[in-house]
Design a binder for these strands. Structure first.
Length: 443
RNA sequence: GGCCUGGUGGCAGAGUGGUGAUGCAGCGGACUGCAAAUCCGCGAAUGCCGGUUCGAUUCCGGCCCAGGCCUCCA
């Protein structure tokens, strides 16, 4: 089954043909670690985790790289506010990120490079750009010369003139051209910095991805992915840096971008206060419910992230886990064809989910859901999940109440048995009488 | 102003040049001590105006509406 992906470069779906069919290489832009990530940051991680899983089924070797940006002005500001060392802040938030993404069912990338560990590579790359006339030093900075690249702007379909005309930002006086962007900037004594031929300083935002992708995936690789908002300037500038430094006609063959996430119909933003961190959501909903909601719309479409959506996602998973419950549900050997076909068409996860609804066999259902990174846990564990800080009855108390209710039912004291059931319901525990006895779940 | 998305039943959300998936909700039935869960069945939608076509929700043009990007941003 051939894989087709939408390539931002061409604005069309294209058959996926790897550069080396023996080794597919994928890069996804990761977070800047200065705080817990928000739910919008999780969308590319989950969407491209589905891609990673699919590629691993198709190709003998896949290398997936997702960076962690641990040097950035926001980090410096936050560390100063917190009165803590930068490394303490970045280590703590990077660990929280990794743990949160794991709880969303995302596989760990093969490499998770941190920018501060690749400053040497970045300095080398900037040196190459200067040597080739694509960059120039100015007042302690090094800038990329946009006019030096004939087809700059291909990804975002913008010409240099359009950029300059639409610019909302004041042009720094040391720029030769208003469109030029920073590769290296000087640091004061208090700011973190590294030695370079242009003085002590730190890298600009874009250069780390160029340097780290080249190091782990090569000068050209297959897929580069990230959020829609990264098309410009981040990915445009990565392309400029990598192509001009290495002299290739392309950096990555396929550029994939996920759409944005709205909160209750409005753009998520700090000023509106409609801002959820993955960390806090994981206290209130199971990770798989959050993941299912993220996959319930196509990755390129906008996704409205609502409480109702989470409740519905959890209900769907309740039903699926109900199919698995008490039955032998080891995943069947292969992913059901309908699911595989849907995912092969530019990751059509909503269509794949609809196919899952048609599956009644537990092993097949689990195999199909696993392709989406869902139904990865034991069914009983799923039904015992409770929100953080919930004050409901313990498992043992529930079992005891069920036993008391069974005794009442046997004595045909339905008033008492219904009282017990209602009492548990108020406490968030739902009972279901089946042919094999009574099962329960936390609502 | 430039570039780019999208407008499908009550809600969520796919596909498709030829009787419009799927899930939730709703309605009816089976099952149950009663429920719940499950199963069976039912009703319900393609923003507006043109064009191409035997036929358009799908292709083309215009309009209206919503959203994103234009050097913080997933």
């Amino acid at each position: 089954m051939s894989l087709v992906v939408y390539n931002t470069l061409s604005r069309e779906k294209e058959p996926f043909v790897p550069i080396d069919a023996g080794h597919v290489r994928l890069y996804v832009c990761g977070p800047t670690v200065y705080d817990y990530v928000h739910i919008g940051n999780a969308r590319p991680v989950v969407a491209f985790d589905v891609l990673y899983r699919l590629l691993r089924r198709r190709y003998p070797r896949v290398t997936y790289v997702r960076n962690i940006t641990d040097i950035d002005d926001r980090i410096m500001v936050r560390a100063a506010d917190n009165r803590e060392p930068i490394e303490a802040l970045t280590n703590r938030t990077a660990s929280a990120y990794q743990s949160d993404m794991q709880r969303l069912g995302a596989l760990a990338p093969d490499h998770e490079p941190r920018a501060t560990q690749y400053v040497g590579e970045m300095v080398d790359m900037i040196g190459r750009l200067v040597d080739k006339g694509h960059a120039y030093p100015a007042e302690g900075h090094v800038l990329f010369s946009v006019p030096s690249m004939a087809d700059y702007g291909r990804l975002s379909r913008r010409t240099r003139d359009e950029l300059v005309a639409g610019a909302r930002v004041e042009v720094a006086p040391y720029k030769k051209d208003p469109a030029d962007f920073v590769l290296w900037k000087p640091s004061t004594d208090e700011q973190p910095g590294w030695p370079s031929p242009w003085g002590r300083g730190r890298p600009g935002w874009h250069i780390e991805c160029s340097a780290m992708s080249a190091r782990h995936l090569g000068e050209t690789f297959d897929i580069h992915a990230g959020g829609l908002d990264l098309i410009f300037p981040h990915h445009e500038n990565e392309i400029a840096q990598s192509r001009c430094a290495f002299g290739h006609g392309l950096m990555a063959r396929y550029w994939m971008h996920n759409g944005f996430l709205n909160i209750s119909g409005e753009k998520m933003s700090k000023s509106l206060g409609n801002f959820f961190t993955v960390h806090e959501l994981l206290d209130q909903y199971p990770g798989e419910a959050i993941r299912l909601l993220l996959l319930s719309a196509h990755y390129r479409q906008p996704l409205d992230f609502t409480h109702e959506g989470l409740v519905q996602a959890k209900a769907t998973l309740d039903r699926w886990y109900g199919v698995l419950r008490g039955r032998d549900a080891a995943p069947a050997g292969s992913v059901p064809q309908a699911v595989e076909e849907a995912l092969s068409d530019d990751l059509n996860t909503p269509l794949a989910i609809s196919a899952l609804h048609q599956l009644g066999d537990p092993a097949t259902l689990r195999a199909g859901a696993n392709a989406l990174g869902l139904l990865q846990q034991d069914a009983e564990a799923w039904f015992r999940w409770a929100p953080a800080g919930a004050a409901g009855p313990t498992d043992a108390e529930i079992e005891a109440a069920i036993a008391a209710r069974q005794a009442a039912r046997k004595a045909r004291d339905f008033k008492e048995s219904d009282r017990i059931r209602d009492d548990l319901k108020v406490k968030g525990v739902l009972l279901e009488d089946g042919p094999k006895g009574t099962t329960w779940k936390r609502g």
